[in-house]
Design a protein around this nucleic acid. Structure first.
Lengths: 171, 171
DNA sequence: GCGGTCAGTTGCAAAAAGCAACTCACCGTC
DNA sequence: GACGGTGAGTTGCTTTTTGCAACTGACCGC
């Protein structure tokens, strides 16, 4: 019947997020917007994506409030796409994918196949490898020392994470 | 012609990673394996995924070295799927998706729609919201204060990030 | 020997993706 | 002032992928 199921109704934030950005192209479109490609044609030629697919992706992303579509001239109408605050907050997802790919998806037989992109932290000016860390004890968080549990299973006094506060305007 | 393009040939770690885990189902399968679902049937009924699609996804993930397929009994042959070290390192991707969904994908009109899962850090025992931080200056990394640049564009003395060292066996 | 469980396979219909060609409104230029 | 080029798509057609349902095959308990 349907060629895709919706995950949006699942009571799980991962499923709901994937419902919006979980397909092959969407995150790559976002990656290029982060890198400064804002126009339809830039995205098209940079990604090698079919125009009809790009049209649909851009519409979905703007409908979801992740991108913003703005006319930068009127005659003829021309548009540019920029990330909203909501879209900016997807940056960690891209960083996480980047780091995993850097570690595992390189061609080991090709010595020239170094990761071509590095993350630069403006605050301190260094090329870095950001890592998830615990705001409480500041040590690194990985699948080895963390797990997710149903909120209901947590002892009441440990439910101190204000998970999902209202969308922040800045930072 | 083809209904999907391969990103694996792009010289970009994000693209290469999405080539493996970038579709609608793969990361959800992985999520459930992290949560302790290891058998075909558990995954099937937990996800509501079609069996043929699950078969293909599990095969892709084991071929990619992200999951491991092990017979847990011989007669009749029964298998279980567990994450490898490579698969475990995808945990940050799921965390990143979880946190974004917690912030943006809740139903604001439904007060009972709290995020049902929280991350617990075994090391300190607290429910936490892990954040990407810079190992150098320890401040939070976001799209606001970081960007990716082509490695070649970096001043030589700042190329101090050993990005993508060989796969670690532990931690 | 009957129903139940596990781990799939097979077959078919519907949706999505790829590709190529086309549109429409302008803009610069020869 | 016709000619080519650019930006942002739309349309049409074909190939893949997904969803769904039904079926298989080996065993197990009763």
């Amino acid at each position: 019947m349907s060629a895709r199921k919706t995950f949006g109704t699942q009571p799980c934030s991962i499923a709901r997020t994937l419902d919006v950005v979980g397909d092959w192209w969407t995150l790559l479109v976002l990656r290029d917007v982060f890198r400064g490609a804002h126009r339809f044609d830039e995205l098209k030629s940079g990604l090698g994506i079919a125009t009809n697919v790009l049209t649909v992706r851009l519409k979905r992303l703007t409908d979801a409030g992740i991108l913003e579509r703005r006319a930068y001239q009127e005659h003829p109408p021309r548009f540019e796409y920029t990330v909203t605050a909501k879209g900016r907050d997807l940056y960690p997802v891209l960083i996480a994918l980047l780091q995993w790919g850097d570690r595992y998806m390189r061609d080991e037989s090709d010595p020239s196949d170094a990761p071509p992109r590095v993350v630069v932290h403006d605050t301190c000016g260094h090329a870095i490898q950001p890592a998830f860390s615990c705001p409480h004890c500041r040590s690194e968080v990985s699948a080895q020392n963390a797990r997710t549990v149903a909120r209901a299973d947590l002892p009441r006094e440990l439910r101190n994470a204000r998970s999902a506060r209202a969308p922040r305007r800045n930072a």
